[in-house]
Design a binder for these strands. Sequence first.
DNA 1: GGGGTTCGGTGACTTGGTCACCGTGGCCGG
DNA 2: CCGGCCACGGTGACCAAGTCACCGAACCCC
Lengths: 172, 172
Amino acid sequence: LEGTVLVQQKSETGRDVTLYRVNAGDSCVLTTACMLAFEDYAAEGTAETDVRAVAIPRRTFDDMVARSPVFREFVFKAYSRRITDLFTLIDDIVFQRMDVRLAARLLELAGEGDEVRATHQALGTELGTAREVVSRTLGEFQRRGWIEQARGLVRLVGRPGLERLARSAGEI
Amino acid sequence: LEGTVLVQQKSETGRDVTLYRVNAGDSCVLTTACMLAFEDYAAEGTAETDVRAVAIPRRTFDDMVARSPVFREFVFKAYSRRITDLFTLIDDIVFQRMDVRLAARLLELAGEGDEVRATHQALGTELGTAREVVSRTLGEFQRRGWIEQARGLVRLVGRPGLERLARSAGEI
DNA sequence: GGGGTTCGGTGACTTGGTCACCGTGGCCGG
DNA sequence: CCGGCCACGGTGACCAAGTCACCGAACCCC
């Protein structure tokens, strides 16, 4: 109903990858998966904000899937969305350069404004990379005059450059 | 019913990643996703063998999901399985060393026997890496006396070494 | 204001991916 | 049988990214 939950894959070494976020209105497929298929899963969820949510007992869920076409569609859409999201995530991880991904993520996180409140470590986790890589890449962005930095803060002052880089994704 | 379909993510540059295989008895979630949620997807499927399969019209599918608990569970299990598979794939790609992954894949592909029929290129695609990396890594394996190579063929002659390396996954 | 903690910067090194190029073996047509 | 093409594999040089180690500076909280 409200809030955001971050789902991450944890590794033994301390590095994590952000798999996706569950937002208000979404259904958490993992919970569903676990409930319906009795499978364990290894990922970890963290509430990023205060969260209000609805928990549905297995029996009720099953019943609703059986009876309501609307609910059925909702559930299947949630699954499909996750799967296609994971596909594009894999695609990004394997084929996309870090600077492109970082630029894109900054623009995304900034939204309408032009400030991103996040530590390099957090950005690294977002993208499944190491803090050092983020630091270096942001350093490069700064040298190009695209951003300004302060502790825990990135200010976007040259969006055009970032946007050009982020868009260069599909260009080969 | 019969055969295997390989699902891969294609990139512009020619490198591909193997996402998963659909085997006899499985349901192809992507088709389901596409059918139910009207979403497009970017992956590509290739029949590795001759394939016999059943196509179910949307209406029938919907009806079966509504009426049969067994079918419902089958479908949800398929989804869950895919999602957890994708999770472990991402985990592997991000955190696992190539030599470990290659060793594991060789053992997997060899099964009971000790021969793997595959070109370096094919193995590279399996693991989402480049042919050169496979060539080099196999070269290293050969130097260690774990494998012998011929054109399009890898013979496992030192399984213990490979197994030790492959198992070193969860350590540290 | 002092001390611990978090954050960020940096250099050195390793691994993996890319590019370019070449040799070799196999296959096929002539 | 021979020549040429092509798929396969090997290799060196280079670049991008991840890892390790360490340090200084900002921040927070007494």
